[in-house]
Amino acid sequence: MHGHDGDKAEGDKAEPEEGARGWATTLTGAAALFVLLRLLAVAHYDWHTAFALLHTLDFEDAPAIFLGTFMANRVVSTVLLVGLTTFTLLAWVARGRAAPVADPRRWLGPALLSAVLVAMVVAHIRSYHSWGLLVAVVVLALTAALLGRARRHPRLGRATSAVLRQAKVLSIAAALVCAAVVSTPWVPLERVEVENGTREVHVFDVSPGFVKVLDADTREFHIYREDEIRSRVELADH
């Protein structure tokens, strides 16, 4: 009897571990696919250009590519912030419906995410004067307040929980769609002066003696010697 109970307990413990390993494998595969789609999208789906860009990357560049994708494009970053605001507010509503106030662990995740989200929204509004984002955040906050007041409604509670359960899958799908369609590179746009004129390029790699760039207009890949480049100026608004 005790042996059977012990086997059952071990089985229950193994299930979360297998689930965690499954998610880790999924995230690893999604990250590799994200980088591949970004290479193709930035190269305008030219195989040779994507292959050239591939050799400017290291394995540890994946986080920079992910963050750069959303920070380099104003529209994408606006959509991302609205989506994050929606999920965060839904998480607050769900915590208020299901978690006791005395248990701070259930509030820690949404609280940290909210702090980071507020900083990102403030930075975005200050940089781009994106008042539409501010209006969207205010509307979502008011909507969340109304949902919080009606959180005891069974159907509303189930709908909120269902959305949150699918948040991981929806986030991965949205990230892959962005990777495939957003052609803005994850590195800043620069104006470089070379011997035969001035060009607007994205600098992907600076190695000893050479600078590897992608032309912003033609999306052609070039390798310049360092002595060929007379000046470099980063263009902030792109």
Rank of each mutant, 00 (worst) to 15 (best):
A52G: 05
K168I: 06
V116Y: 15
H129Q: 10
L113V: 07
R199E: 13
H129A: 12
E200P: 06
Q166A: 15
G96A: 07
L57W: 03
A123K: 07
A24M: 08
A20M: 11
A180D: 02
L140Q: 15
G148V: 03
D46K: 11
P100I: 02
L170R: 02
P63N: 05
P154G: 02
L84N: 13
T69S: 05
P185S: 06
D58Q: 13
A72P: 06
R74M: 09
P154H: 03
G68C: 04
R230D: 11
S231Q: 11
R74A: 13
D217Y: 07
R225E: 09
V182H: 06
V206Q: 01
L40Q: 14
G197D: 01
E190S: 15
H129R: 13
A14E: 13
A50K: 09
N196G: 04
G83C: 12
L39R: 06
A41C: 05
E17H: 12
N196M: 05
L164Y: 01
V163T: 05
L67H: 11
A91S: 15
L235G: 01
V135Y: 10
T85N: 14
A98N: 12
V182W: 07
T88P: 00
V201C: 03
Y224Q: 00
F70W: 09
S183T: 02
V201W: 01
V163R: 01
V82K: 02
T218C: 01
R191M: 09
V213E: 08
A41P: 06
L33W: 09
V121S: 02
A180S: 13
R126S: 08
A111M: 12
A30D: 03
D215K: 03
E226G: 13
A50C: 10
L53G: 03
D237T: 10
G148S: 09
P63C: 04
G11I: 04
L40D: 11
V192Q: 11
V116G: 14
V139R: 00
V101G: 06
L108N: 04
F204P: 03
M1I: 05
I229L: 12
S183Q: 02
A31Y: 09
T143K: 04
E190A: 14
T143I: 08
R151T: 07
T69Q: 05
F34K: 05
A14D: 13
K168H: 08
K13S: 12
R219Q: 08
V122A: 11
T26W: 13
V35S: 06
A102V: 05
L108D: 04
H4N: 10
S114V: 04
E15H: 06
A174L: 13
T86Y: 12
V139G: 00
E190M: 09
H44I: 00
L156C: 02
A20E: 14
E228M: 02
V194L: 07
H55M: 10
A180W: 07
R232I: 14
L84F: 15
A175R: 04
L112V: 12
E220M: 10
A52F: 11
H4E: 13
T88A: 05
P100E: 11
L117Q: 10
V181R: 03
A72K: 10
L235Y: 02
G6M: 12
H44V: 00
M1G: 15
E193I: 04
V181I: 08
L81G: 07
G22N: 09
L84E: 11
H153D: 15
V163F: 02
A91I: 01
R95T: 11
S171Y: 07
L214H: 10
T25D: 13
V122G: 03
A145I: 06
Y128I: 00
H222D: 03
L36F: 12
R152I: 00
